[in-house]
Each structure stands twice: as structure tokens, then as C-alpha cells.
Design a protein around this nucleic acid. Structure first.
Lengths: 216, 216, 216, 216
DNA sequence: AATGAATGAGAGTTCATTCAT
DNA sequence: GATGAATGAACTCTCATTCAT
């Protein structure tokens, strides 16, 4: 997920022409810690993300942690923004620009489920954040809802969406966000934490509903 | 949630009208603890609901707690079912039986927001439960979704809802549940935890969407 | 192990000619508690013998306990004397009075192992008592060693045991007591707490040693 | 039991002769904790060896304990092996290699009592271990009995011990172990916990018995 | 005499954070 | 900048004992 220096720092030609800069190294450690934190929160939840756990995973001493983050809460607050951006980029980069109307919504939710399948801990990261990292959660929601609203606004302007005013779009955005989250929760995760594909008829129901509600 | 007279009134007119203070007191203590727990989870989250906190609030010794609950998790698992039942009963008892169609949905979400206004901690109780009391959360969702599905099925049979099969109703139920939750989160709570009324145009947007999606 | 009232108190002929006296009932409860304590210490050790455990087993309320015993330590201190007496009586009552010399020792240790087989918790009761009920332990050891010494004195007087003075008998008694305890510990108990018969050759080695040391 | 220099002296003459204070200090803390535990178990029994007690005695914070031991049981399990080794080494190192026959036994038990006089808590450590640290107890007994058996086997081979087969030696070893333990318990400790010398005639009785039983 | 709810001290353990090296 | 030992408050839970009923 981040700059990862190759493990072999190449001991060859011992006189170092230029060994990785201090800044680089530091950045490296920082990212290692973030990576570790993301993995652990995904696996064990925020609760399980103790400093001991994170630093052990990152293979640095506990003390090192505090050279990069002010507190435990500090790093927890950074996780969701990072992963959230990654999620939205995942979807954005894979959306077909030529698809329009409700088909875009179908694509969007399908890609969302796809992302969840690849990053199963993401759902947990978001959900628990409301409690464990409220600031991060707020930022994340703002980020995602704004993306939604932008998209809906364009559809409205293009005349694909009919019968709503711009002022109503925010509420609608929240409805779409909530919907995909709950559908994932209900249909994408089995009791034992494993991920399974969301049934096609669930997706098509979603599309039906959205289509009638917005695009008709 | 509050004092419930014991079923067995027993001891067919033994001396005092006043019977079995022992059992009453015990039931009282139990309810005091549950009340305290609900309040604290609402205010500080499940995390903050330590035994020390709960018992202090209930003004009993820490040891007393374990006369009524097996463990901390035990009481946490009981909170959502209790409050969930209370919530659904609140709504059910206030629904006008003569209202039909999308108006019922409007009534339902309005009552839901009303309930939240009276029990602001309820939202937190539900949300965190997914992590902190997963079993309770699962039960709660089953309970609520089943209610929704029953209601939707009737509307479908009456011909108010058109264009969907019975199989699609579960997914739709989850969409409705999620929607009201996220709208509450976004519009009912101010940043400082206070509750505010959900704007009328948000509700009417919700009604518009549902109306077009289902009742037309 | 104690007076045990029959369970059925015979509800027949309801007018009580004479329902068990108060004193009887009390004695009964007391013994029930002692029985429960013995069983629990045998199964779980002194540590596991909590008041809650004992009273639950005896089917009385916790408070009742303190009508019969001053404290937890009080009852623990009574267990070993009771069981110790039972053990010595078990052996004494089964010893063949016509057996003499080292054969008596063989009989004694065999009966001891037999008693352990029937009361496997006895070994634990004695061993832990040194720590958990030191007073009781001291009394028990005095009791058992005095019995041994009496017996050895008679053998000495009869001329079966040769080469020792009366003053040496106490030390010898302790050697015999210790020996049978350790042999039981090593050979009578399997790792999973079960009891198994002590191998014949262990017993015969014991007899050889004792025979040469004392009776020759 | 005390400071053990780390094996790796490492850093081939880097600047200071004084190396790695870090590791030394740590080792120190560890030993302080072990020492404290040994003393407390000796004085108050395993029961009294609470973390609070141990750390207070060692003058470190309670949390520090868990930097060195996984759990309370962990340290308790380590005490007997450590002290047991110390005991056997104490005796072995002081045994006169030129002494043979029953005189060796006399020397052995005398040294045992001597060790107990110097480490009065040892007896308690061993005795309670059967309950409080069963694994450690098993290991200790194996260790000690094997030493005994080796020694007895040699005596048998040299012809000092007569009339027994190798198979009988284990039982005999247990008899010797048990004997010295019980004699110590009876004669070395006064009621108020103080240690007193075992009377000479007790030792000579022991020697008489062993001599006749084995060496004649 | 019997009850069992209430008590509160104390148990083992975890963990974010600090700081001398 | 990196280390990791030390800290101590806070956690959940147990239990002998008391006492009003």
C-alpha cells in the first residue's frame, strides 16, 4: 500500500555512494507502522490494535512508535482516510466513463463489493471508526458523500435523474451510501468472517429500486 | 426496562398485602444496573461501560454486579435486545392502523426519529453493537428486518407495492433500515452529541424516493 | 460418611407424630456441609473449596454456612481429623490380630493403599493440609504417628523388632509414614488423577526393606 | 539464582569495557523477581506469592513483572527447578568422594539438613509444589530420584548394597527421599517456623535403619 | 435457623506511554 | 532516530463475610 523499500539494501560495494536518505528511512518506518496498523485493525479490530501489536508486526521497538505518531489515537485516526481514499480511487479508476444512467450505479456498487472482497477488513475499519476514530469517520463520510453528490449532480444536470432538486441530493447520497454498506454487511460476509459474493438478485434488486427511485 | 412485578404472586393471601420484598429489591437492583449500563453505553460507548462505571452509576458495589450478570459481556449482550424491543414497540404502538401506502413509511421513519430524540443513546447502542456485542446485533437485525419484511409483504399483497417479488423484500428491508439509520446519523445528531430534529425536506426526500421506488 | 437422613422424609400421614428434632436437623445440615466440603476438597483441592461451592453442593444458602462454622478455615480444619480417623479405623478394623512381625507391616501398607483406592482424594487432603490447614495437619500427624509408635512399641516388647530402643521408635514411625505416602504418590496415582493398584513388587520391596531394617 | 553474565560478550572491544548495561539490568530485574518469589513462597507459601507481593518485595512496578514472566504460574513453575538444582549441587559438591557405603547416606542426609538450615523455605517450596506447581514438582522429583537411583545403582554394582535387584532401586529411592523429607518436617522445624538442628540420635537412627536395610 | 443480596478488598493481567541508554 | 525496560492506572472478576429479612 505504500513505498516499500526493497529488503535487500544491497550490502555490495560497502562504501555507500548514497545509502537511502534519512528522510526516506523515516518515511519508510512510518509507512511500515501504518501498514501494520491497517492489517491489525482489519484482522482484530481497533481494540486489538495495541501499540505492542503494531510495533511487533512492524518489527520496530515500542518506543519507535512515538517518534512517528503522537499517540495511539493519532495513528488510528489516520487509517480510515488512507484506506478511504484508496477505496474511492479503486472505484473511480475502474468506472467505465461511457456508462451512464442507472448502469453507473450498478457499476459503482459492483466495484464496491469487489473492493470489499479484496479488502475484507475495510468494512470493519469503517464501521468501528464511528466509535474508535470519530474524527476520521466524519472526514471519511464527508469525502465519500461529496463524491456521490458530485456524481449525482452531474446526472441531474444531464437529465438522467429526474424529479429532484440539487438540495435533495445529499440525503439521496446518504441513502445510497447506507444501502451499499448494509447490503454488504448482510450479504457479503458470512458469520465466520469470510467474504462471499453478493448474490446477483440482490444487486439487481438494488438496481431496480435505484432505477425507479431516481432514473425514471 | 423497569420494575416488573414477579409473575408468581404466590402465598395466597399470607399476612401482608406487601409481598416478597426480597425478590422485588433484587429485580430492582438488576434493572438499576441495566439502566445504568444503557445510559453509559449511550454516553461513552460500550468501551466506557466498565464494571466500575456501571456499578458506580447504579450505586452498588462492584461485586453486586456479578450477582446479576455473568460477565461484562453478558450485560452488554442484553442491552440491545431490551432497547430494540422497546424501540419497535414504541413505533408499533403509535402507528395509525388506518394509514396505508407510502404514508405508513413516512409515519414509521418519523416515529423512528422521534424515538431517537427521546433515546439519543439508542443510535450508538445499535451501531457499536456490531463490534462490541455481535450476537445481540445479529438478533436485533433479525428482529427488525423481519418486522420490516412482514410489513412489506402485506403491502405487496394489498397491491400497494408493485413490481417486486417476495424474494426481493429482504434486500429492500435492509435498504430501508440502513437508510433511516444513516439519515439519523447525518441529520439527527449535531457534532456535540446533542439531538436535533431531522429537517422536513430530508424526510420528504426519503418519502419521495421510497414512494417512487416502491409505491408506484 | 456421616448420619444421613433418608431423603424421603415420608410425607405420608401428614400430621407429624414427631418430625425430626431441631437438634437432629441442625446436626444434619452440619454434616451435609462437612460431606460437601470433603468431596469438593478431594476433587478440587482446598483452593476450590469456596463457601459458594460448598453451600451449593450442600444445597443450603451461603449464609447458613456461618450458622455452623466460624469461618472457611474452621471447616477446612475439621476435614482432615474426620477423614484421618476414618482412615485409621479402616485399617485397624481390617487388620488380622493373629498376624505378627513384618507381615503386619505388609498388611498395614496394603490396607492403606486399599483405602486410598476407595478414597482417592484422601492423599490430596493430607498433602495440601500442611499448607491449607496446618493445625489439622499437625493433629493428624500426631494421631497417626502415635498409633504407629504404639504398634512398634508392642513389637519391640514382643521381641519381634530387635536392635532399637524405645526412643528411636518415633523416628522410625515417621520413616514408615513417609514411605507409604511417597510410594502411594509415585505408584498409586496416574498423571490424570486416576488411581491404579500399587505394583506387587513395590510392596514386596517395601516389605524386604522393613523386614531387614527392623524385624531381623 | 544470581546475576549471570550474558554469554555473548560481543562487539569485540568496542569502546567501553563496560558492555551492554541494558541486558545486565534486565537480567538483574529478572533475578530480583525470582529471589523475591522464592523468599515469599518460603515465608507465606505459594498462596501468598501474589504479583503485588512479589513486585513490592522486588521494588518494581507490577507491570514490570510481565516483562519477565508470562503469568504468575510461570514464575511459580520456575522456582522449584532453580532451587532444586541448587540443592542437589549443594550436596553433590560437598560429598566426600572417598566415603563409601552407608557413610555416604549419612553424609547425604546431613548435608540435606544443612541445606535446609540455610534455606529454610526450601521445604515448603517442595511440599506445596505438588499442589501449586505440579509440573515443576514432577520434574523435581524425577530429577532427584534419578540422582538417587544412579547413586544406588553404583553402590549395588560395587557390592556395597546387597540383596536387591536394579528394578527395586526406584522404590528404594522414593523411600529415602520421603524419609529425609518427613524427618526434616518433624525434627528440623519448630512450630514458629524457625529451623533447629536435627537431633543426632535421629540421624543415627536413620543410619541404623538404612544400614541394616541396604548395606548389610 | 435459614436465606441470599450486598459488600469491597484484592486477585491476575493489560497496555499506552515515558525515558535513559 | 531507535531501543525496550519500567511504569502504574485501569481493567474484569472472585470470594469470604455480613446482615436485614
Amino acid at each position: 500500500m505504500t513505498t516499500q523499500r526493497t529488503l535487500k539494501t544491497a550490502k555490495k560495494n560497502a562504501r555507500p555512494v548514497r545509502e537511502s536518505t534519512r528522510a526516506e528511512k523515516a518515511e519508510n518506518t512510518r509507512n511500515t507502522l501504518l501498514d501494520a496498523a491497517v492489517k491489525i485493525v482489519g484482522r482484530l479490530g481497533y481494540q486489538g490494535a495495541s501499540i505492542a501489536n503494531i510495533t511487533a508486526h512492524a518489527k520496530v521497538a515500542q518506543g519507535t512508535f512515538y517518534n512517528y505518531f503522537e499517540s495511539r489515537q493519532d495513528i488510528l485516526d489516520q487509517l480510515l482516510p488512507i484506506m478511504g481514499r484508496q477505496m474511492t480511487e479503486y472505484i473511480k479508476s475502474r468506472m467505465d466513463p461511457d456508462t451512464h444512467g442507472v448502469e453507473r450505479e450498478k457499476q459503482r456498487i459492483t466495484l464496491y463489493f469487489e473492493f470489499l472482497a479484496e479488502h475484507p477488513w475495510f468494512h470493519r475499519l469503517v464501521n468501528e471508526a464511528e466509535t474508535m476514530a470519530p474524527k476520521a469517520h466524519k472526514v471519511y463520510f464527508k469525502h465519500v458523500s461529496e463524491g456521490y453528490i458530485r456524481s449525482l449532480t452531474r446526472s441531474l444536470e444531464r437529465g438522467e435523474i429526474k424529479g429532484y432538486t440539487v438540495e435533495q441530493l445529499e440525503a439521496i447520497a446518504y441513502m445510497l451510501m447506507s444501502t451499499r454498506t448494509y447490503l454488504a454487511q448482510r450479504y457479503a460476509f458470512s458469520s465466520r468472517g469470510a467474504v462471499k459474493p453478493v448474490p446477483a438478485n440482490v444487486i439487481s434488486t438494488y438496481v431496480d429500486v435505484i432505477s425507479r427511485a431516481l432514473y425514471r
